[in-house]
Nucleic acid binder design. Structure first.
Length: 317
DNA sequence: CTCTGCGTTGGTAGCAAGAG
DNA sequence: CTCTTGCTACCAACGCAGAG
């Protein structure tokens, strides 16, 4: 009698246990799902540490009731209650000590910590040279191919002046993809190695592709604008092109180039109008070229440089 | 060289809004 | 009402560059 009761008891225990285990399983599974859906992006996906911090703040705010600017400040060891806010808003920069405190408070491990440090330095660096150095470091610190392809490609493309020149060269109908021909066409000329690497790189980055007949033709990869990486890349590019313009004063005869300049005393209103008219002129030229049915014979670079010679002009918003 | 002004960084006090 | 939170105005210390 007692034995049968015991069996029934055992059975019931096991049954509830099973139900319990099953429900725990369900619970953990759905819990896991909840975690997954509100998971934030990995820090490696960011090129702006302020954007990362903003997302971090929003994420924390959503997932924990106790999180606040004050809480974070205290955790990171700041006396000031709203450091995080100031930094997210871009009103303040992070010092080297501050970076350490943030890494600690954000709970970033070795690699992510190093990435965060470099990212902050990259965003906060003023000198172009330092910015470039930090950017290369960022790419190095990013595991695998996780770094945003588009931005990396963009940076690569603008890193050498002859990449865009070669991209235009392929439109010449007697274009020959041998490195020797390409190197010989460019002025100033580049090495065979550079030419070879450039074609491989342009193909890899998607700026040129092979047509059905196997000829190289232009292609349009996605290019983002407006972010810091883009503007850094483009500044590097402009710097090189302005350098080439200076060189061309010596190396190209006057009949084959057009270099002129004006020094103007202007109002703010005229300044804006001149900028607009330069942009309009560029559009006009692009339009003209696209309608020109003649074959491509040359690749030229046209720069516009319009910049202040007085310090006030450089500062006005 | 010193002095001065300025920008940066870190901090304090306190206000308004909202929850409880 | 109190307490928390977000936010801002303001202050102090420090380093640095430029003027004299």
């Amino acid at each position: 009698m007692h034995f049968t009761y015991f069996i029934v008891f055992l059975y019931n225990v096991l049954r509830t246990l099973k139900v319990y285990i099953f429900s725990v399983f369900i619970l953990t599974k759905s819990f896991h799902l909840v975690i997954l859906t509100s998971e934030m992006k990995d820090i490696f996906e960011y090129t702006d540490f302020r954007a990362y911090l903003k997302d971090y703040y929003l994420y924390k705010k959503e997932t924990s009731s106790y999180f606040s600017f004050r809480y974070f400040s205290k955790k990171a060891g700041f006396g000031s209650p709203s450091v995080l806010k100031f930094i997210i808003d871009g009103q303040r920069n992070l010092s080297q000590d501050g970076i350490d405190k943030f890494i600690e408070a954000l709970g970033l491990t070795q690699k992510r910590g190093a990435f965060f440090r470099t990212l902050v330095n990259f965003n906060q660096a003023k000198a172009e040279k330092a910015k470039n150095r930090y950017f290369s470091e960022l790419i190095r610190l990013t595991p695998g191919e996780r770094f945003r392809h588009v931005e990396k490609n963009q940076y690569e493309f603008y890193s050498k002046w002859y990449y865009s020149a070669i991209r235009e060269l392929v439109t010449i109908d007697y274009f020959n993809e041998s490195p020797a021909w390409i190197a010989g066409q460019l002025h100033p000329s580049i090495s065979l190695r550079e030419a070879k690497k450039a074609v491989a790189m342009l193909l890899k980055l998607g700026f040129i592709k092979r047509s059905k007949s196997g000829k190289l033709i232009q292609a349009d990869p996605i290019i983002t604008t407006g972010n810091e990486v883009a503007s850094l890349s483009i500044r590097n590019f402009h710097r090189q092109m302005i350098g080439l313009a200076a060189e061309s004063l010596n190396s190209v005869s006057r009949e084959r180039r057009e270099i002129s300049g004006l020094t103007l005393g202007i109002s703010e209103k005229s300044f804006k109008e001149i900028k607009e008219r330069i942009a309009a002129f560029e559009d006009e030229l692009l339009d003209m070229i696209s309608k020109d049915m003649e074959k491509t014979e040359h690749v030229y670079q046209l720069n516009f440089q319009f910049y202040p010679l007085n310090s006030h002009g450089a500062k006005v918003q």
